[in-house]
């Protein structure tokens, strides 16, 4: 079955959002969402890494692993290539955007183990996307992840002024907000089929 790349792209942002329908990439989503500017920065970094690693992992999988019958190595290969590109992104960010580098702190290297990124690489191989679809799927997932974290940061900024019950402050209320946001997004699921 082939999918329209554009449909996959938009589905990855809205109806099949990484955070709200797959619950992948939650740790940095919750931890770095207290400031809109920082979350935009992390969102951009995640989008960049996703858009690059999706086609690279596609090529690795179909032109290196499959011909040699080494598909079972895909986890380790994907993780290593993701790690290398995160390292590269970190060097670039440190050189060009020191302020962003400081505010992202440990979460930039932690993109390496952001499940959303490995998730994209695995989904695209399981769903048999072609190269263009995979690339757009990676880009869309990144944008979707950024949309989610920026939206959460915006809500959290307003939450600072509200009286949250003591037991729910911090991550408690954040998870509840995420759940409610997910309900809104899941309402659109099923409109398009991407798997």
């Amino acid at each position: 079955m082939t999918f329209n790349p554009l449909v996959v792209f938009f589905a990855a942002i809205f109806t099949n959002n990484m955070i709200f329908s797959n619950f992948l990439g939650m740790c940095s989503f919750i931890a770095v969402s207290s400031d809109i500017k920082t979350s935009i920065g992390l969102g951009q970094a995640v989008t960049f890494v996703l858009a690059i690693t999706a086609p690279i992992n596609y090529l690795l999988y179909h032109y290196v692993l499959v011909p040699f019958g080494l598909e079972y190595l895909r986890y380790i290969v994907f993780i290593v290539s993701i790690a290398a590109f995160v390292q590269l992104v970190e060097m670039i960010v440190e050189r060009s955007f020191p302020s962003l580098h400081q505010s992202l702190g440990i979460f930039l290297p932690l993109i390496t183990v952001n499940c959303a990124i490995l998730g994209v690489s695995l989904f695209m191989t399981i769903r048999n996307y072609n190269l263009i679809t995979s690339t757009l799927y990676g880009l869309g997932s990144g944008l979707g992840w950024m949309l989610a974290i920026v939206a959460l940061a915006g809500i959290k900024k307003r939450m600072k002024m509200s009286a949250v019950p003591e037991g729910l402050q911090g991550s408690g209320i954040t998870l509840i907000i995420t759940g409610i946001m997910a309900l809104a997004f899941i309402g659109f699921s099923g409109i398009v089929q991407i798997s």
Binding site: V64, F68, L70, L73, S81
Partner: peptide, 10 residues
């Protein structure tokens, strides 16, 4: 082959 490919890649 596994070792070779993986070593080349890393």
């Amino acid at each position: 082959t596994t070792l070779l490919i993986f070593s080349l890649f890393t």
